[in-house]
């Protein structure tokens, strides 16, 4: 299939093999579990927010190449962003994966995250690419010190 390389870009394979910020954060003040029931992906996102900004973010768990790479690149992208900025990036990222037409401008504005544009051709994999982001949202919505929230992409 010609677009297989579009899906499994070098950057994605690299982050899947060597995920960044892949660790449990014992002193996180927000965390949530994400579960993709279809394929068994399970990950937990950890977050520290200071003055409305992402101070530290990490993740841990099991997943396919797409969900792991997406989580890894998400953590790189979010460092230092405000909660509102994070939400905005997610919305544009989601549109990139699901919009029926290619939008080069949108892809450019997403920087490194644009490598996921190829996922659009594989609708069943959109859930893999967005699992970490849905989990992040649940973590942000969670009150500090409450037990981990849980989301599922089913």
């Amino acid at each position: 299939m010609s677009d297989l390389r579009e899906l499994y870009q070098e950057v994605i394979l690299d982050h899947a093999k060597r995920p960044r910020n892949f660790r449990i954060m014992p002193d996180a003040d927000h965390q949530a579990d994400g579960h993709n029931r279809l394929c068994g992906d399970k990950l937990r996102v950890f977050l520290k927010v200071r003055d409305g900004k992402v101070d530290a973010v990490s993740f841990h768990g099991e997943g396919c190449a797409i969900s792991k790479a997406s989580a890894s690149l998400m953590t790189e992208t979010l460092a230092g962003k405000t909660v509102a900025e994070a939400q905005d990036i997610f919305e544009r990222f989601h549109a990139l994966l699901t919009s029926p037409v290619e939008d080069d401008g949108a892809a450019e504005s997403l920087g490194k995250l644009a490598v996921f544009a190829g996922v659009r051709e594989f609708p069943v994999r959109v859930k893999c690419a967005t699992l970490a982001w849905h989990t992040l949202q649940a973590a942000m919505a969670q009150r500090p010190d409450a037990p981990a929230a849980a989301v599922s992409t089913e």
Partner: peptide, 12 residues
């Protein structure tokens, strides 16, 4: 290699 990635590539 996660089974899900195997499935996508085999489908192709």
């Amino acid at each position: 290699v996660h089974p899900h990635d195997i499935g996508t590539i085999l489908d192709g």
